[in-house]
Amino acid sequence: MKPKFSTLIVLLLITAAVLLPFAFSPLYIPLMREHSFDLLEALQGDLYKMITGFTALAFVILEMLLTVRKRGRRWKISIPGSMVLWRSLHIFLGVGLIAMILVHTGGQVGDNFNMIFLWIFWGTSLSALMGVVAETGVLESPRKYFGLVPLQLGAVAKVFPTTTKGPLIRGLRLIWLSSHIIFVSLFMVMLAFHIFLAFYFQ
């Protein structure tokens, strides 16, 4: 059930396609305001934002179940399913959450707090997805040794040392997993503040 490298590349391409509207929103939002104002008003309305916002929140809660599953024994909580299953669900739900955020925001980056919140969310999602893609690529590679220079000849090997899969994956994980945890922590704080602001100014 663990996603293969080819599946993860497809998910990465889907994620890139889902993020494209954010880049083009300065072009299409004014067009919608001019030609389809009623649709734009509905997409920015309280009911639409509330429905899509709670749906996105449900995705976040499901994403956090991986943490509960990981630490279930220590916390005396039993959640069925293997870690491989939960990691796979975590990856697919993460891509789904990115799509849900597009639906919730209409592709608008926003200003001030909302803009920072969106950038933190992208950092959270992309740090994990890129890390998993890199790690899976190394695991599935037929190569035994990895280095900056493909052929290790004499003195070149001393300048550009090689490493095996284990140390390389540990090094990758140290980078992407650490940054992902930092982004997740920031995201959760900002999410709580976002929910508070949404209901306070309603």
Rank of each mutant, 00 (worst) to 15 (best):
F92C: 07
I116N: 08
E140P: 01
G147L: 02
L97A: 03
T55G: 11
L97M: 09
I77V: 07
L89R: 14
G106T: 05
I51P: 03
F54M: 11
F5K: 13
T15N: 09
G53M: 09
I182T: 11
A58M: 08
G123Q: 06
W86F: 06
R73W: 01
E63Q: 13
Y200C: 05
V60A: 05
M190W: 04
A23I: 15
S6T: 14
Y200L: 14
L177R: 15
L47F: 14
S36L: 15
L126P: 01
V95M: 04
K70A: 09
K49V: 10
K49P: 01
V103A: 11
F22A: 14
I61C: 03
E135C: 08
K76Y: 05
F24W: 14
K144T: 13
F160M: 07
L43D: 09
P80Q: 02
A155V: 14
F54R: 13
L89P: 03
R69D: 02
Q202F: 11
F187C: 02
L20G: 06
A155T: 12
A198L: 11
R170D: 00
M115S: 15
G154W: 07
A157M: 10
L102F: 08
T124S: 10
L40R: 15
R87G: 08
A192Q: 03
M130V: 13
R71F: 07
V159M: 09
I14H: 10
I51K: 12
L172I: 00
L139V: 06
M1Q: 10
H180L: 06
I51T: 07
P3I: 01
P3L: 10
M83H: 07
I182F: 15
I77D: 00
G110D: 10
V132L: 02
F37C: 10
I120E: 06
R69C: 00
D38Q: 15
E41D: 14
M115V: 12
R170H: 09
P26C: 04
L47E: 05
I182N: 06
M32P: 00
G137F: 01
I101N: 05
L168H: 00
I29R: 06
V68E: 00
L153H: 09
G107R: 04
V149E: 05
L126M: 13
M100T: 07
V10H: 08
F146T: 00
I120H: 01
S88T: 04
M64Y: 03
V149S: 03
I175Q: 11
G53A: 05
Y28A: 06
R173K: 15
V109E: 13
V18K: 06
A198H: 13
I120F: 03
E34F: 12
T67I: 09
E135D: 11
S185K: 10
V156H: 04
L12G: 13
K144M: 10
I9P: 02
L13Y: 05
G72I: 06
E135M: 10
G110M: 07
L20Y: 12
L8D: 05
I195K: 05
